[in-house]
């Protein structure tokens, strides 16, 4: 189990650091030039805002246990695995599409996502395969032929 409160703290620290980075970059773009706000004006303030509010949140979360988070207190590891798994599958699709093309790759991705979210039955896999095949063909026809998109 990953405690949501801990995650909140990590994310706040990350955002604070990010705010400082944005401000630093903003100063590099130029804050004010010839009396008018320059390219860095907005980034500087955005960075300051991010850093300050994240610091407040960090302070608050550290002091008051579980005040800002509603009913969920922890994320189960299987759920994290599923989120990472689904993201990795989609990322894998991007890589695969450069090798075997978008349409075959989307067929593979649809099967994989279906397996991830669906029940583990033979009937389901059979329907899923047909569905994925039909969908891949339909998508290819729609986007490539009708909309003229140069698919990979």
């Amino acid at each position: 189990m990953l405690q949501v409160r801990h995650l909140d703290i990590y994310v706040s620290i990350l955002l604070m650091g990010f705010g400082v980075y944005v401000t630093y970059q903003g100063l590099g773009y130029g804050y004010v030039e010839r009396g008018t706000p320059s390219a860095g004006f907005f980034p500087v303030w955005v960075g300051v805002g991010l850093a300050v509010f994240s610091a407040i949140n960090l302070f608050r979360t550290c002091r008051h246990h579980g005040l800002s988070i509603g009913d969920i207190d922890a994320i189960a590891y299987p759920e994290i695995a599923k989120v990472l798994g689904a993201s990795a599958l989609m990322a894998g699709f991007i890589g695969l599409s450069f090798v075997i093309g978008m349409t075959p790759a989307i067929f593979v991705l649809m099967l994989a996502i279906g397996v991830l979210f669906g029940p583990r039955t033979i009937g389901f896999y059979a329907v899923l395969t047909v569905l994925a095949l039909a969908m891949a063909i339909l998508l290819h026809f729609t986007f490539s032929s009708l909309l003229g998109v140069p698919l990979i």
Partner: peptide
């Protein structure tokens, strides 16, 4: 199990 593969596929083609 049926909906998400289809939706993700459409989303990916749309965004692309």
């Amino acid at each position: 199990g049926y909906l998400y593969p289809v939706v993700i596929a459409i989303v990916i083609y749309g965004i692309f």
